[in-house]
């Protein structure tokens, strides 16, 4: 497997409390990987280290053949903006902007003009079946619709990797299935890899492969998946 993103020997502590104690993992281009584990196992910390949100205390994170854990803040945030997309448990949409404007936001922040950004957002609105609510505010739509907006926003700038942290945590099971189906199919269509953190087996089952983190360590499957 040629890996697009990898972590080797990752350690991270918060004060005296170790969250990661030597995790290795690899994500291939176009692969959907689920990171599972009970709450407090370190799975979100792992995602944050891989995505350049947190710097590990020890170990290496490599993306597209380059070390990214030692990058300075400015270059790391540029990398996050141009190469990575993010979906969190609660969409973290801007409440004052319409769904259309929320989706266009990464392009606007990246310097694409307003007209081009909004036009690109329009395509994603159709693709994710949000046409009827495109001009509503996030507070006026369901949790499932809000997560679809978060998904479109994560994918609009053409990221190589989408990081999703408990993306269905606030949804009922029907909406959760819809969001996961869209996440997996749209990311595949765009050629992006996905790292999804979840404690729910039903969500993890959408992935190509699952990795379990327990007490800050990766539990390797003892049998072939």
């Amino acid at each position: 497997m040629t890996s697009l993103l990898s972590g080797h020997g990752l350690h991270k502590s918060f004060g005296p409390i170790p969250a990661l104690r030597g995790v290795d993992l690899e994500v291939a281009a176009g692969e959907v990987l689920a990171v599972m584990g009970p709450s407090g196992s370190g799975k979100s910390t792992l995602l944050h280290c891989l995505a350049g949100i947190l710097a590990p205390d020890a170990g290496e994170v490599t993306f597209d053949g380059r070390r990214i854990d030692k990058l300075l803040d400015g270059r790391r945030s540029r990398l996050r903006r141009t190469q990575f997309g993010f979906v969190f448990q609660f969409g973290q949409l801007v409440p004052e902007l319409t769904l259309r404007e929320n989706i266009a936001l990464p392009l606007l922040l990246g310097g694409r003009g307003r007209r081009g950004s909004v036009a690109a957002a329009g395509e994603w609105i159709e693709r994710l079946q949000l046409t009827d609510s495109a001009d509503r505010l996030p507070g006026e739509v369901s949790g499932g619709q809000a997560q679809r907006v978060a998904l479109a926003r994560a994918l609009i700038a053409g990221p190589r990797v989408v990081f999703a942290d408990e993306p269905t945590g606030a949804l009922d099971s029907v909406a959760a299935d819809e969001v996961m189906e869209l996440l997996v199919t749209t990311a595949r269509a765009e050629g992006a890899s996905v790292v999804v953190v979840t404690h729910e087996p039903r969500v993890a089952a959408f992935a190509d492969r699952q990795l379990t983190v327990r007490d800050g360590r990766a539990v390797l499957p003892a049998v072939a998946p």
Partner: peptide, 9 residues
């Protein structure tokens, strides 16, 4: 657990 996850997949 791995067997169950594989079947779910």
């Amino acid at each position: 657990r791995q067997r169950h996850l594989a079947v779910m997949r």
